[in-house]
């Protein structure tokens, strides 16, 4: 009976509904004492009622679920190209700095997949900025004056004005931090270092690589923080003021703050749009309570956080999947919505999930974009789901909660383009 209880979980369908009221409390974990220096930032869904100042609508109109999945597919394919080293050769896709960039962008059309935002402050005096968080990119940036629309987009806060910040400076072309931009470099103009970043969903930002004080919380400030002062953006950022890069290369916030916070960070993405999560820089020095797996690096692209998958269980039963299917590793990404698995693994997961759901007789619903296993739960007050557990190299496992199994009534997984990808 205990095994059966761990194999299935029953959840109220009311929990699938999107609430218009924010349960505005930081989780207990965020408030708990942490050894050493740490800065804890409030993290929210950009379109939920907990968005900064309660102005979710100001952060861009919520995209349709189908549009989100379309953008998600472009991002997933882009990451896979970068990790495999094929990005430079792929038509229509490019690494930052490519001179042959072709970017399908829709100015002001908010279908970006970066769904989580934090508020920090920039400059002296400090000016609040609401930024998307992205573990899949390195360079942080904000829109800066002058920034006419277009080529910039409208944002909820006043544009950051570098001329009004006493601690601001443009990075000179001769500076080491300019030459270290490498793929993100965009030449030199008037002695100032130019930057450019292109994202997998087709968005771009260009401007002046700059330095200023970044205030994370009232008592945690980072002097000389390097970021992009964006003067031309295209694409999918409508409403937000910029982006906070949490990738692994030297330009990211994590790298720049490593002398203070030890290169350690964690985040908690809230289970619903009306609850609050957090990002913690620094924090617990021990891994007590965490299920851990080695961090790996893709030789083709050191930006990404990569782990090794070892297997998947559905309803407590391990799926029969050859370990070689997972040999390419898995990118842990906050900006991709739906987990992508090699087709062989996805097929096994889908079959096991459908079989486990069959006894309950839930009506099927049409596929939604890339999601092909959907149900109509409208006649049900509660639904019972098989648990899904993802195992990692070294024995770690994620036993997914209900918020990690379904999205919009569909199994929240999708296949990659091929087992060898």
């Amino acid at each position: 009976h205990a095994d059966a209880a761990r194999s299935y979980v029953t959840v109220s369908t009311s929990s699938f509904a999107v609430s218009s009221t924010c349960a505005d409390e930081l989780p207990g974990r965020a408030a708990s004492p942490r050894n050493g220096t740490s800065a804890v930032l409030r993290l929210t869904h950009r379109h939920g009622p907990c968005a900064p100042a309660g102005k979710a609508s100001a952060l861009g109109s919520p995209p349709s679920f189908l549009d989100t999945l379309r953008a998600d597919q472009r991002r997933a394919e882009y990451i896979q190209r970068r990790v495999s080293g094929a990005a430079a050769a792929a038509p229509g896709m490019q690494l930052a700095g490519s001179k042959a960039a072709t970017v399908p962008a829709n100015l002001g059309f908010s279908i970006g997949t970066l769904q989580y935002v934090v508020t920090v402050s920039l400059g002296t005096p400090a000016v609040a900025q609401t930024l998307e968080v992205d573990t899949g990119s390195d360079v942080s940036w904000v829109q800066c004056k002058p920034c006419p629309s277009p080529p910039c987009y409208s944002q909820r806060d006043p544009l950051f004005d570098p001329t009004r910040s006493s601690s601001y400076s443009a990075v000179p072309c001769a500076a080491a931090s300019c030459s270290q931009l490498a793929l993100y470099s965009n030449g030199c103009s008037g002695g100032q270092c130019g930057y450019v970043v292109s994202y997998g969903d087709g968005s771009t930002t260009t401007g002046v690589y700059s330095s200023d004080t970044l205030t994370l919380t009232g008592s945690n400030a980072l002097k000389g923080f390097l970021f992009g002062c964006g003067h031309a953006q295209q694409g999918l950022f409508a409403g937000v003021d910029g982006l906070l890069g949490l990738g692994r290369q030297g330009q990211s916030l994590v790298s720049q703050a490593s002398s203070t916070y030890g290169g350690v960070f964690s985040y908690c993405l809230p289970p619903t749009q009306n609850s609050v999560g957090y990002i913690s820089l620094g924090g617990p020095s021990s891994t007590t309570g965490f299920s851990t797996t080695p961090l790996l690096t893709a030789s083709n692209d050191p930006t990404y956080y990569i782990v090794m998958l070892a297997g998947i269980s559905v309803g407590g039963q391990p799926l029969s999947i050859d370990a070689s299917v997972f040999a390419s590793g898995a990118v842990v990404d906050t900006g991709t919505v739906v987990t992508r698995l090699p087709p062989t693994a996805y097929s096994a997961l889908r079959s096991a999930f459908r079989a486990a759901m069959a006894p309950y007789g839930y009506p099927s619903a049409p596929a939604t974009g890339i999601l092909d296993t959907c149900y109509d739960f409208t006649r049900y007050g509660t639904v019972t789901l098989p648990t899904i557990s993802i195992a990692f190299g070294g024995g770690a496992a994620m036993d997914l909660g209900t918020s990690g199994i379904l999205t919009s009534g569909c199994l929240a997984f999708a296949p990659t383009g091929g087992d060898s990808q």
Binding site: F265, S266, P271, S291, L295, L309, R340, A396, S403, T416
Partner: peptide, 28 residues
């Protein structure tokens, strides 16, 4: 490569320290 997306990361605290990635369930 597979990609672990944000739907599956929800409610976990995900921790990076330069050599490991950690997952703690029901943290938010």
């Amino acid at each position: 490569a597979s990609i672990l997306g944000n739907v599956q990361q929800r409610s976990f605290e995900v921790r990076f320290d330069g050599s490991t990635v950690g997952f703690m369930p029901a943290s938010c």
